[in-house]
């Protein structure tokens, strides 16, 4: 249970980090280490070199610009959960990420690591897709931005190229007063989600839905965005939500050692409705408070 020896680099700048990653010697990025280190101990992963980005300057800030949120790759998951500005402008981030691991692992786990590792249960990936965020990358040839909606390709598969470093997540401004909710089920409390649903709903002055997003985890190879445009103009009553059945009918979730595909197919619509209803109710609360 001890990792194999590795060359260890602790760069202090993004430029230095990407130069090390660009050498093409199979170096891996060490951020929070909450997923990488167990894999190294099992020697499932044996990187010849680690580029520890924890000391890289300028990657640990959460900044708001005109309602948009710029989240550095080194922001710890718990720091994102605790950030009052982020909770106000993009409540889905807190709703989703508070389910990730436990307090001690959220203290180390990072936004960049969660995106790059792209675990199929990673709550942040669902939120990034629902919020139409953009993943910011850097390589020796310069910066690159990839929309979250095309970044995630499958379990642990992303658009990240060898030698590229995730530097941040850019989340566009949300419709004012949008509500958000996240629900998941797992075998044990705070264990990996078997199925999860992320939802945001914005309402018009009359209290009807004017925009909605629904993203499910673990029903498809990557975070799965469901077309819920049919909810616009409704109050998410049973009749309106009934239309979801058609949108979810084609799902063919994978099964694994923990849970069958059939179980996921049965649970997903329940969580989807629950998340949308809660998000709608919270949007209504915002409207009354405003």
């Amino acid at each position: 249970m001890k990792p194999a020896p590795f060359e260890y680099h602790a760069p202090s700048s993004v430029a230095e980090a990407v130069a090390l990653l660009g050498r093409g010697d199979g170096a891996q990025v060490l951020a929070g280490g909450q997923s990488l280190v167990p894999l190294m101990k099992a020697r499932t992963v044996r990187p010849a070199a680690l580029v520890d980005v924890n000391g890289v300057a300028g990657l640990d800030a959460i900044e708001e610009r005109d309602g948009a949120l710029q989240i550095g790759a080194l922001v710890r998951l718990q720091a994102l959960v605790d950030h009052p500005g982020a909770a106000r402008s993009h409540p889905l981030l807190r709703e989703a990420v508070r389910h990730a691991g436990h307090l001690a692992t959220r203290h180390r786990g990072t936004v960049g690591g969660s995106l790059a590792y792209a675990a199929p249960w990673a709550e942040l990936t669902a939120a990034a897709v629902a919020l139409d965020a953009t993943v910011e990358l850097r390589s020796p040839s310069g910066p690159r931005s990839v929309p979250a909606r095309s970044f995630f390709r499958g379990p642990h598969q992303t658009a990240l190229q060898p030698g590229e470093l995730v530097t941040g997540l850019s989340v566009p401004a949300q419709p004012p007063g949008a509500g958000a909710a996240f629900h998941e089920v797992s075998a044990r409390y705070r264990d990996y989600a078997h199925v999860a649903a992320a939802a945001t709903v914005a309402v018009d002055p009359a209290g009807a839905c004017r925009a909605a997003e629904l993203v499910l985890l673990r029903v498809a190879p990557a975070p799965h965005r469901v077309d819920v445009s049919g909810l616009v103009g409704t109050r998410l009553d049973d009749a309106a939500l009934g239309a979801l059945d058609a949108a979810l009918a084609g799902l063919d979730p994978p099964g694994d050692v923990e849970v069958s595909g059939a179980h996921r197919r049965r649970v997903a619509p329940v969580l989807a409705r629950r998340a949308l209803r809660d998000a709608f109710a919270r949007a209504g609360e915002h409207r009354e408070a405003a």
């Binding site: 602790a10 280490g33 909450q34 280190v37 520890d52 307090l103 001690a104 692992t105 203290h107 180390r108």
Partner: peptide, 16 residues
């Protein structure tokens, strides 16, 4: 507790 925050000591390298 690392600078007051709980962490898994098995998932950090000592150099960190």
């Amino acid at each position: 507790l690392l600078d007051g925050e709980s962490v898994r000591a098995c998932l950090m390298f000592a150099v960190q």
